[in-house]
Amino acid sequence: MTDIEGASARLAREIGNVLERNPQSRNILQAFEPILQEKARLAERIVCKQIDPSAIDRSRLAGGIPVIRQTPLLLPEDPWEEIVRAVIPAIIQGFPALRAELLVLQKGIDDGTIRLSDFYRAQDGHPVLARWAAAIVVRQVAIDFLLWAAEKPVLENRRRTLQEVLSTSGWDRGYCPCCGELPSVAVIHEKIPQRWLHCSRCGHDWRFSRTLCPCCARESQREMPYFFVEGREQETAFICASCKRYLITVNHIGDLEEHDPDVLAMGMAHLDLLMQQKGFLPMTVSAWNVFD
């Protein structure tokens, strides 16, 4: 089995397992599966201008300056057309309600009124988006969603080339050393209970202290509050008393096989709901943790 089929089969199996334990998340999982599968395939297939790892300033990185602040990770010359052509059908398959708008967007891209490279060339992307929205009758949120889906394979591809630099950077901050995003989900291993944060934008995992809040770095070894589902001790959400944020955390995650923390997080969407009802904010928006 080539690596792509392997990853794809593993993803399908992971989603199957999550559905077994949390059937109520079926709609979310089935909506995002095509996008995640497509992202995995694209990240392997697309050819992007590689960032030379030696160009990263390691001391600035150790000082807390993520890669994205040292060099752009999304370039105008990236193969956006190829990505969009593959991503749009995947989104439509997952989100049939967006079918019409996405087809309009596809047409706009085909006839050149919408060139994603303009967005990534512009210092400030907002005017470009406004221009696009005016040119074709599509909701801003649909464009956002397309961009969000299109960026994932590029970020994933670039993050993999920087993996060695990232994992040896001694990074001890709560936000992602690669793309600067805050974590959407964390896992705590079972045998040696280290905490690993996961960035759902670029897919990077990094180890982080269990007594600090990733968002506001508050130290709280006296009391680290969290919630868990009775009978499902693995499903937890750690909260920070000072910045009032929560972080979905798979406690005592299994260590026998690789995991996709995003899929596991989708299976715990009920915890997102409950935390938000209690007035806590997620540390970041990961597309599947904001409901209305």
Binding site: N17, E190, K191, H252, I253, G254, D255, L256, E257
Partner: peptide, 12 residues
Amino acid sequence: RLQDNLSPACVK
């Protein structure tokens, strides 16, 4: 435990 993808209690 294996079904929860966890290693056996002795290994842990």
